[in-house]
Computed example of a mutant assay.
Amino acid sequence: MSSQINIYHSVHTALKMVAFTFDDGPNPQYTPEVLDIFNECNGKATFFMIGEKMKEYPDIVSDVVLKDHEIGNHTWSHPMLTQLNQEKCREELELTHSIIMELTGSTPAIFRPPFFDYNEEVNSVVMDFNYDVIGALNPDATDWEMPGVEHIISKSRNHIGNGSILLFHDGFGDRSQTVEAVRTLVQEVLSDGYQLVTISELLKSARK
């Protein structure tokens, strides 16, 4: 029997809430820069972290938690999960699940597959962790390709609305364009009356 795949790219809510999410960290340069942006406006964000990077930079993980942001599972080593057998897939999730609990004291509730590489076999493993699987509305922003600040802004701006989930990256390479784009987008959404919330806060608002 196949398991039903349910990936949240946005949530249905009447509230003006947007979730900014950041993949592939923690990173010693760019994660703190992102944290500063959200600290300045008292907004919250969600970080889908790679387990081996969490092990390398535990102090940054602690800082994310201290500032009340959310951490989600993004696997241990960022593989294409559909190319792994179920045992290896489970190991990728379990190792990161464990280090999140170890470093944060909390059980992760959300997961994002690397490269959005996902199928029924992967989903059957993920379901055992009771994760909500999180996508995003703006992969066309392609911030990981360094397409330019204005490209990242304009493509992301097109997807902003109640319940939007936006994807950015704070790890793997030069993320200076992402930081500058996010700085501008954060000010725009706040000016438009949106709250910046974590994924779990966004899901909770939709389930009331």
Rank of each mutant, 00 (worst) to 15 (best):
G161F: 10
T46W: 00
V197Y: 02
E94L: 07
L190N: 06
S106C: 13
Y30P: 00
G43T: 08
P79V: 09
K16N: 14
R90Q: 08
P113R: 08
E102V: 09
V126Q: 05
G171T: 10
N27F: 03
V125T: 05
L35R: 00
L202G: 03
F116E: 10
A181D: 01
I134A: 02
A136I: 08
K88N: 09
E150L: 14
Q4H: 15
N73W: 01
H78A: 04
I199K: 03
Y131E: 07
E52M: 06
D192Q: 15
N119L: 13
G173F: 12
H97N: 10
M101Y: 12
N158I: 12
S2D: 15
E87L: 13
E201Y: 05
V189T: 09
E150F: 06
H97G: 00
H69W: 08
L95F: 02
L196M: 13
V179P: 00
Y30D: 02
V197I: 11
T96G: 03
Y131K: 10
N123H: 12
V11T: 08
N85F: 03
K208N: 07
N162W: 14
S98R: 09
N158D: 15
M146V: 12
I7F: 08
H159S: 14
E145P: 07
P79R: 05
Q177P: 02
T13C: 12
E102Y: 11
K16D: 11
E201L: 04
A206D: 03
A19W: 00
V197D: 01
R207E: 10
L137G: 03
F47N: 02
M101G: 08
E52P: 00
F172N: 11
G173R: 13
A181G: 07
M127T: 04
H151E: 12
T184H: 10
L137R: 08
E56L: 14
M17A: 09
T75Q: 09
D132V: 11
F22R: 05
E56P: 02
E120R: 14
H12L: 14
D23N: 13
M1W: 15
I134F: 06
E150C: 06
A45K: 00
W144T: 07
N39T: 07
